[in-house]
Amino acid sequence: MNSPASHPFSICVYCGSRPGARPEFAAAAQAVGQWIGQQRGQLVYGGGRTGLMGLVAEATRTAGGRVVGVIPKALVDKELANPLCDELHVVDTMHERKAMMAHRSDAFLALPGGIGTFEELFEIWTWRQLGYHDKPVGLLNAAGYYDAMLGFLAHSVRDGFMGEWQMDLIRTGTETTQLLEALRADVPKHAQDDRLAENI
């Protein structure tokens, strides 16, 4: 097993447990995993082997990266827990899952997905605005999947329920490599130091 300390960039990826209806979604997941692996980085994700989750994990592993899966007991069978993870943590609750994923990561990236992906993205974004962490958060808008959501968020700003500064806390993009490199560049040094000091 690879040592966590040998992989300085650890990124949490939120994405669908389904593949979605368009091939661009699968291509985006594979491209993200390939980039992580090529950088000898570490993927932290929900631990499943289906849909985009399985694709990003397999692409990371195949390209030489390290894969950490975190999955609650209740979803082990439903999400078909991935036995090929370098680490597979089975926890009791979704709260434990999300907390562990956050602690094990230097940055966060959302790919296309459903309500679980939306919930994870909005929670980690909310934590950022409240100052619970200062790690970068990204949104990969593959094939325009998030166009409507981004439009609604702009509407929320116009109607006074959000500020532009909150939108500035999330980095959006359509180019995989460019977005991932930007997220890595935004990681505060202490985040990596803290994670490695805790040997996680």
Rank of each mutant, 00 (worst) to 15 (best):
P23S: 15
S105F: 01
G138C: 09
Q30Y: 00
W125E: 02
V44N: 14
L55F: 02
P136I: 10
P4I: 12
V70S: 05
V187I: 15
D134P: 00
V91K: 10
N2S: 11
L183N: 09
L121V: 04
G48C: 02
K98G: 03
G64L: 13
L183A: 07
M162Q: 13
I124S: 02
Q30H: 06
G151Y: 00
Q166E: 12
R18P: 00
D106E: 12
K98R: 13
V76T: 15
W127C: 04
A185L: 04
R158P: 00
L88Y: 04
R195M: 04
K189W: 00
S17T: 15
D106N: 14
T50V: 12
F9E: 15
M162Y: 08
F9N: 10
I71H: 08
M162S: 13
R61V: 01
E175M: 05
K189S: 08
C12P: 07
C12E: 08
F122K: 09
L84C: 07
T50E: 10
L150Q: 14
G131W: 09
V56A: 09
M101N: 03
V70C: 06
T93D: 02
L180I: 07
D159E: 12
E164I: 08
G54I: 12
G33E: 02
M53F: 10
W165Y: 03
G131S: 11
T117Y: 13
Q34T: 15
M101C: 02
A57I: 04
H133N: 10
S6T: 11
G20L: 03
W165R: 15
T174R: 13
L75C: 02
A81F: 05
N141V: 03
A81D: 01
P72Q: 06
R195I: 09
A185D: 15
H103T: 13
T126F: 09
G51P: 03
A63H: 01
D186L: 07
T60Y: 03
P136Y: 04
D194L: 07
D106G: 13
Y146H: 14
A148G: 05
H95A: 14
R22F: 01
K135N: 08
L183M: 11
A107K: 06
H190Q: 06
V32T: 11
H95R: 15
A185M: 10
E24W: 02
S6C: 05
A142T: 09
A27E: 12
W35Y: 10
Y145P: 01
D193N: 05
V56F: 07
T50C: 14
K78D: 05
D92R: 10
L169M: 13
W165C: 02
G46F: 11
F152P: 00
R97T: 09
Y132I: 14
R97W: 12
I36H: 05
I124N: 01
E164W: 01
F152K: 14
R128K: 15
A59Q: 09
G51L: 06
T62E: 13
G163K: 15
D106I: 01
R97C: 07
